[in-house]
Simulated scan of single mutants.
Amino acid sequence: MSEEEKKIETTPTEAAAEENVEKELTEEEKLAKEEEEKEQKLRLESFRKAGEIHKQVVEYIKPLVIVGAKYLDICEKTEAKIIELGGEIGFPTNICVNEVAAHYSSPPDDESIIKEEDIVKIDIGVSVEGYVADGAFTVSFNTDPSTQNLILAVQTAVLKGMSLIKPGVKANEIGKATSKIIKGFGYNPIKELSGHSLEKFQVHGFKEIPNVALPTGDVFEEGEVFALECFASTGAGNIHRGSNCYIYEYDLKSDRVPLRGKITRKVVGWIAHNKKTLPFSMRELLKEFRTGKFAIRELTTVGKIGQHMVLKEEKGIYVAQWEHTFLVTEDGIEQLT
């Protein structure tokens, strides 16, 4: 028998064997496969829904960012609108003014108001089933000529950055491009802040998009979701930690420790049920627990809570921010916010 005849003779047998194995594996793995497909469908639907809610919230709140408006009212109205539209708070509303770059979310007693000459950044996170759409915009009331293109710089950088993204591209290439644009406008990017991937119940995932040129970077892959956020500063582009913290995040990876306070154990239960590892504000917590500050103090002391400290440039410096969330597709991106 020739080799060709042997090949012809064995092919049906081999095909049948492969078919049997495939059938066997399909039966064994069918439930797991269905669950995986269901989760993937939920993931995409949730990201897209969160993005649509985010767009509506921005459209609603942007006209309310005016001189004389209270920071607290903007935070409260933003988060109330998220819930009204069927979402949840994915990241406490940030209202960061002038040199404050990130992580200021009004405490319950905040009397601060927007003033003439302020530059105001609003950063909003919307969660649906734990999947977060993250985005930010800036409104300027400043008349100093040196700030007139600050918002345009970050807008242009984000749009250009997103236009370059597709599977296989490295994140440091995006940082190089956005940094060049911001510097071209005469400003400096803030190197300590970066864009980030988004995972379930994780606003800041495992991959980053730098705001500056770096020698290496993470690779974009189809199906991943990222937030690209750019910051431009009229100063050197360096930030430091402020002395205040209004945003916290439970650390599931920390060591198990006994919790003494009854209120602390209740707060942990609330976090586990409502937030998982999503950040939450002191303001949100105190609506649920009047004495929640004591719980935060204990949880911080034992290392169960991470702090998002207020981040600032130098006094007298102005910072602008722009941010969009997107899905990496086969040949580019799908913008979600």
Rank of each mutant, 00 (worst) to 15 (best):
E28Q: 09
I174L: 12
S281Q: 08
D144Q: 00
E288G: 05
T93M: 05
N274S: 11
Q307D: 05
L31D: 14
K170G: 04
E173C: 08
H103A: 09
K49T: 01
S254C: 08
Y318I: 08
V67R: 08
F47M: 13
F185L: 14
I82R: 00
A153P: 07
E117P: 00
D255A: 14
S105F: 02
V132R: 04
F141S: 00
I182L: 10
E39R: 11
D109T: 03
H308S: 10
H54E: 02
E3K: 14
V120K: 02
I239P: 03
I181E: 11
K77F: 08
L278G: 02
E27V: 07
K170P: 01
D218S: 11
L72I: 14
I333V: 15
E229Q: 07
K23H: 12
L164M: 15
V319W: 05
K176D: 09
G205T: 09
A153N: 12
D218P: 03
H54Y: 14
Y71G: 06
I263H: 07
A213Y: 09
F326G: 07
N211D: 08
P12H: 10
E323G: 15
A232S: 14
I263Q: 07
F326R: 10
L164G: 07
I165V: 15
T93C: 15
K49G: 00
I247D: 04
E192P: 02
